[in-house]
Design a binder for these strands. Structure first.
Lengths: 146, 146
DNA sequence: TTAATAAAAGACAAAAAGATCCTTTAGTGT
DNA sequence: ACACTAAAGGATCTTTTTGTCTTTTATTAA
């Protein structure tokens, strides 16, 4: 589906936001471990995300990564387009440059609706909405364990 | 969406089948030119498809590529899985190994239906069905040009 | 103010994808 | 039989993706 970098990005940011909810600021080592990603590569990706302004960080003891609560929620489509371009959200299954309703490739009619669904998914969901889902799932599990 | 090799494969095979309908057997140079793909790379891909039994070829003068009419139509999903694996048809948006309805990643609920649509598309359409679409489109264009 | 901590930066390396080229083999037509 | 044609095979190269490692910089706590 997505490439590795995008997968690590999604998993990493959702993990960070989940910890933020719990008033924690995880660091690279913890994040990489928890999301099952290569540590140095994870660090590099997070670095880039901070540079791009998607994420904030603090250096030194007690440091780590967090989301600026004043910023609006981060839609997946924004994030993914910044990471791997928009190959998942636009473009033609056949790889044609000018494929549209007027000049459709033979896959267009069937594929266009799927692409539209992807776009809806990418615009509708945010890192924060996903983290909230995970958080609620965790609460439910705790409850059931009692 | 798909990777380059898959795109060239789809475009190439549909072109071959379209020419077959017209009782022609195109060669590598013609195919590459018509589908706008790198000639040597196209040759290599077609070679592999022949080895895998998806396609037939004839060497020497008057040679080229064609589909064995006795074989059943070739579903896109079969072809694509043989080319790039099934990253487009299965697997989780988050990259988790055991993501399913019981143990869902936070994208699962929204992404699973999209993946299902992709599967339906891949099983429903074949190289032959796509070529037929293009053929009909061509006929319509000719008619309108009159 | 010093030692410890953790992110930032950037060089480097390995693997995979994408692409090219040359030689060989098989078949065709004269 | 011979020259020609076109696919098959395989070696090589480039670019992109993925991943590692070392050094530097900023911050904090003792």
């Amino acid at each position: 589906m997505f490439n590795k970098e995008t997968e690590y990005t999604l998993r990493g940011l959702v993990y960070i936001q989940l910890q933020n909810i719990k008033n924690r600021r995880p660091g690279t080592a913890e994040i990489a471990r928890e999301i099952d990603a290569p540590p140095f590569y994870t660090a590099k990706i997070l670095q880039r995300l901070v540079r791009q302004g998607f994420l904030a960080s603090i250096k030194g003891k007690g440091g780590g990564f967090y989301f600026d609560g004043d910023k609006p929620d981060l839609p997946l489509i924004t994030l993914i387009q910044a990471t791997e371009g928009d190959r998942s959200f636009s473009g033609c299954g056949f790889g044609l440059k000018n494929c549209d309703a007027n000049n459709p490739c033979p896959l267009h009619d069937k594929y266009a609706p799927i692409r539209d669904s992807m776009n809806k998914l990418g615009s509708g969901e945010t890192i924060q909405s996903l983290a909230k889902k995970v958080y609620k799932q965790e609460l439910k599990k705790l409850k059931n364990a009692k």
